[in-house]
Amino acid sequence: MHSPFPQRPRRLSLLPMPSAEFAMAFASTPRGARLARLFVAHCLDSWGHPHTGRVNETLTLITAELCANAVQHGRVPGRDFHVRLAVEADGARLRLEVSDTRAERRPAVATSSDTAPESESGRGLLLVTALADDWGVSDRHGGPGKTVWAVVRSAPDLREPRVCCP
C-alpha cells in the first residue's frame, strides 16, 4: 500500500544526545572500557568541550584509567560496569563516576616510588590524582560494589575555539 505522505528516512543514533547527564552500562571487557571512553569523549564534545580541548582530553584519560581498573580489578563475571558523567549543579564542574560490583577491592593511591620503573601498570590512579581536581571512592548506590568518581573543572576551553558556520 502506497502512502500519500512521503516517508522520511529514520535517523537512528546510538550516541548520547546533549543533556546534563550521560549514563550507560558497559560489558566488563577491554572492549567495553574502550567504548566507555569513546562515548564519554563524544558526550563531552556534544556539550561544547571539543575532542582536542583540555576538558575533553583530561576526562577522556581519566575515563580510560577508571574503566580499565573496573575491568581489571572490579570485574565480576556476568556483571557490567556503569559510567555516569554529569554536570554538577553549579555548572562549573563535571563529575565522572565508574561503578563496579566488587566492593571489597577499593583503590588506594600508590606513590610513584611504589611502582617499579620497568612495570607496565600501576600508575593509573597516579594519573587520576594528577589530572582530577578531586576524586574518591564511595559505596555504589542501588547495588553491591563501589563507585570511583573524579571531578574536573569545566571552564570553557580557550585553546581551540569552535568555529560555527552560518
Rank of each mutant, 00 (worst) to 15 (best):
residue 2 H to Q: 13
residue 3 S to T: 14
residue 4 P to G: 07
residue 5 F to G: 03
residue 5 F to Y: 07
residue 5 F to V: 13
residue 6 P to K: 09
residue 7 Q to D: 08
residue 8 R to G: 11
residue 10 R to P: 03
residue 11 R to W: 09
residue 11 R to Y: 12
residue 12 L to I: 14
residue 19 S to T: 07
residue 20 A to Q: 09
residue 20 A to E: 02
residue 22 F to E: 07
residue 22 F to W: 10
residue 23 A to M: 09
residue 24 M to T: 02
residue 27 A to Y: 01
residue 27 A to L: 07
residue 29 T to S: 12
residue 32 G to I: 04
residue 32 G to S: 05
residue 34 R to A: 11
residue 34 R to S: 05
residue 34 R to F: 01
residue 35 L to F: 04
residue 39 F to I: 08
residue 42 H to I: 05
residue 42 H to P: 01
residue 43 C to G: 09
residue 43 C to R: 13
residue 44 L to K: 07
residue 46 S to T: 09
residue 48 G to W: 11
residue 50 P to Y: 06
residue 53 G to W: 03
residue 53 G to S: 09
residue 54 R to E: 07
residue 56 N to V: 06
residue 56 N to Y: 12
residue 58 T to C: 10
residue 59 L to R: 01
residue 61 L to P: 00
residue 63 T to Q: 00
residue 64 A to T: 02
residue 66 L to S: 07
residue 69 N to H: 00
residue 71 V to W: 06
residue 71 V to D: 03
residue 73 H to L: 08
residue 73 H to V: 00
residue 77 P to L: 08
residue 77 P to T: 08
residue 79 R to D: 03
residue 80 D to S: 10
residue 82 H to I: 01
residue 83 V to W: 01
residue 84 R to M: 03
residue 87 V to W: 03
residue 87 V to S: 06
residue 88 E to H: 06
residue 89 A to D: 10
residue 90 D to P: 04
residue 92 A to W: 00
residue 92 A to P: 00
residue 93 R to C: 04
residue 94 L to G: 01
residue 95 R to K: 06
residue 95 R to W: 00
residue 99 S to V: 03
residue 101 T to E: 08
residue 102 R to M: 13
residue 103 A to I: 02
residue 103 A to F: 02
residue 105 R to C: 01
residue 105 R to K: 08
residue 106 R to T: 07
residue 107 P to N: 08
residue 110 A to D: 10
residue 110 A to V: 12
residue 112 S to K: 11
residue 113 S to H: 14
residue 114 D to L: 10
residue 114 D to K: 08
residue 115 T to W: 05
residue 115 T to H: 01
residue 116 A to E: 14
residue 117 P to L: 12
residue 120 E to Q: 10
residue 120 E to N: 10
residue 121 S to E: 11
residue 123 R to G: 09
residue 123 R to L: 14
residue 123 R to H: 13
residue 125 L to M: 15
residue 125 L to A: 04
residue 128 V to R: 04
residue 129 T to L: 10
residue 129 T to A: 14
residue 130 A to Q: 15
residue 131 L to A: 12
residue 133 D to E: 15
residue 134 D to V: 05
residue 134 D to A: 15
residue 135 W to N: 11
residue 138 S to H: 07
residue 139 D to W: 04
residue 140 R to F: 10
residue 140 R to S: 10
residue 142 G to L: 10
residue 144 P to E: 14
residue 144 P to S: 14
residue 145 G to C: 12
residue 146 K to V: 15
residue 146 K to H: 08
residue 147 T to V: 15
residue 147 T to A: 12
residue 149 W to Y: 13
residue 150 A to L: 01
residue 152 V to G: 02
residue 152 V to P: 05
residue 154 S to A: 15
residue 154 S to G: 15
residue 155 A to P: 00
residue 156 P to F: 08
residue 156 P to K: 11
residue 156 P to E: 13
residue 157 D to A: 11
residue 157 D to C: 10
residue 158 L to E: 13
residue 159 R to C: 07
residue 160 E to Q: 12
residue 161 P to G: 06
residue 162 R to P: 01
